[in-house]
Design a protein around this nucleic acid. Sequence first.
RNA 1: UGGGGUGUCGCCAAGCGGCAAGGCACCAGGUUUUGAUCCUGGCAUUCGGAGGUUCGAAUCCUCCCACCCCAGCCA
Length: 553
Amino acid sequence: MEDTPSSNFLQSIISDDIASGRVKEIVTRFPPEPNGYLHIGHAKAISVNFGLAEANHGRCNLRFDDTNPGKESQEYIEAIQADVQWLGYSWDAEVRYASSYFGQLYDWAIHLVTHGDAYVCDLSPDEAREYRGTLTEPGRNSPSRERGVAENLDLLARMKAGEFDEGTKVLRAKIDMSSPNMNMRDPILYRIRKVAHHQTGNDWVIYPTYDFAHGQEDAIEGITHSICTLEFEDHRPLYNWLLEHLPVPSRPKQHEFSRLNPSYTVTSKRKLKKLVDEGVVTGWDDPRMPTVSGMRRRGYTPAAIRKFCDMVGTTRSDGVVDVAMLEFAIREDLNENAVRGMCVLRPLKVVLTDYPSGKVEDLRAAGHPNRDDLGERVLPFTRELYIEADDFKAEANKKFKRLVLGKRVRLRNAYVIEADEVVKDALGNVCEIHAHTIPNTLGENPQDGIKPKGVIHWVSASQGKNAQVRLYERLFNHEAPDRGDNAFMDYINPESLEVIENAWIEPSLAAAIPEQGFQFEREGYFVADRYDHSPDKPTFNRTIGLRDTWDNP
RNA sequence: UGGGGUGUCGCCAAGCGGCAAGGCACCAGGUUUUGAUCCUGGCAUUCGGAGGUUCGAAUCCUCCCACCCCAGCCA
C-alpha cells in the first residue's frame, strides 16, 4: 500500500508554509461528528488529512466533534474508529474529543463576554431568525445586545447552572448584524441542551456550537492546517475572528477543498440514514451502501479506496466523479491480487458420456495466471459437471464463443469437450447436455487441429459445493440521485440485489476466509461475506463484475 | 437584487505568459485455456463567452454568462 499522494493545492500551501517557516511540523485532523457512519466522502477527507500528514512527516489527529449530544452516540464513535483503522491510517496519540475541551471553551466564552465580545441573548429561535435578516437585507441588533458585562457574566453562569429552559437564551458573539456574511451576524456560541452527553454525562446543559468549538479545538491541538470542505468557506472569517479574539495557544489556518460526489450514489448522512431506517438496505454496512463499512462488506479493499481518492485528486471545483473510476480502482487491485476460482451461478448439468462414472481426477490450476506466489489449487474433474446455463446454445452464430451442439469448447483448466445432445424436460427446457471429451487436450489443443471456440468455466457436480452468491448492482438508477431533496428515494434501483441460493463453487472456495476476495473467472470479483460465510455455508458477495467489452446482441 | 466560490476533452485533473500532462470512459488493432488482464494506436488547433494588453495568453486586464454554497439554538 505505497501511496504516492499526487500534488495538489493543499500540498503547495503546506510546502510554502514549511519553506517560509510558518510551521515546522504539519499537524492535521480528521474531525467527524459521531452521528452516523463514515462514507466514501469521509474516506476522501481521511485520505486528504492523513495523507498530507504522512507525506509531510507530520501528524494527524482523530477528533470527534461531539458538540451536539442529541444526535450522537457511542455506537458511531466505535464504528468510525474501526473504519479509519481499516482504511489503514493511524491517528496521533489518543482519540480526541471536542467534549474534553468543554471547560476551556467555557472559560473562553467568559473571556469574550468580559471583553465585550459576546452577550447573552433572550431572543427565541423564531425571533432570532427574524432579526437575522435575509441574504439581501441586513439583520437588526438584538434587544439584548447592549447588556453589560456583569449581567452577561451572571446570565451565562446561570445558563450553565441550568436555570433556563432550552431555547430561551443563547450566548452570541457581538460582531456585525449587517454583515453580508450571515455567519458574522452575531453567531450563536452556546445553546442550552438539557440532554446527557455520551462522553460528559450530565456535566453540562449548555453546549458550544460548531463555530465556537472548531477553531479553538484546532488551536488547542496545535493543528497547523485545518482542512475542511467548501461549505465551510463562509465560516472562515468567523473561525479567524474567534481565534483573534481569544488567547489561544496556536494559530491554525483553515483551507477548503471540494467534497467528493460519485455518480449514482448518495452521500449525505441524513439520506443514508433514511435508507437504513426505511429498510431499503439492511443496515449501514449493507454492501450497496457507499459507507466505508458497506464497501468493506462489498469487497472493496483499503488500497482500492485510497487509490481512488488519489486518482480523483483534491481541488476546489465541484463536480460528479464517474463511479467507473472507483470500479476501475477495485478491479485493478483485485485483478492483481485476488486468487482465481470457478463458480457457476446458474448451473446446467453436463454429462461426459465417455468419462467413467465414479472417477475423480485431481487437476491443478494456478491460483493466479501470472503470480506463482499465489500457489495453485486442486480441481476435481468428474463425469458430471455444471456449466453456466448462458454458456450453452443449441445453435449460435460464430460470435458465440461458448458451447454449441456439435461444437467444441475448452473447459477452463481442463479438457476440450464437444456437445452431442440436449436433454429437455417435459416443458421443453434444456436441463442437461450430453457431451464427450476430446482426448489429450489437457494443456494442449486437439490433435485433429479443430480448435475449441472458446473457454468456459465449470464445477464438478459431485465434488463442488453449494454456495449463496449475492449479486449487487448500483443502488440508484439516476446518475445524480443526490440533487433535490427527497427525490433520491424515487431513483432506487429495484434490482440492486439478486440472491442466488444454489450457485456451485469449486471445493477450494469453501475454505475461503471471511473477507477474502477472489476472482470467479469469467464472472467478476467476489468476496467471502464478512459475517455470513463459513465452510459449511459458503456465502459470497459480488464486489464488481469483470469488464465486459463483448457487445452481446 | 447581498456575500463567498468554481468554470481546461463525455468524467476527474495537470497547467501559474512561450505555443494543451495524465487517469477514467470510449474506439481500433495485437497477445491470451478468463469475450478479463496485458500490449499498441486513436481520442481538446482549443481552455465558459466577448473584448483588450503582449512578438506571444488557458495563463495578465475588463465586462458578461453559467453553476455551487450561505438566512439550523446542525456539522
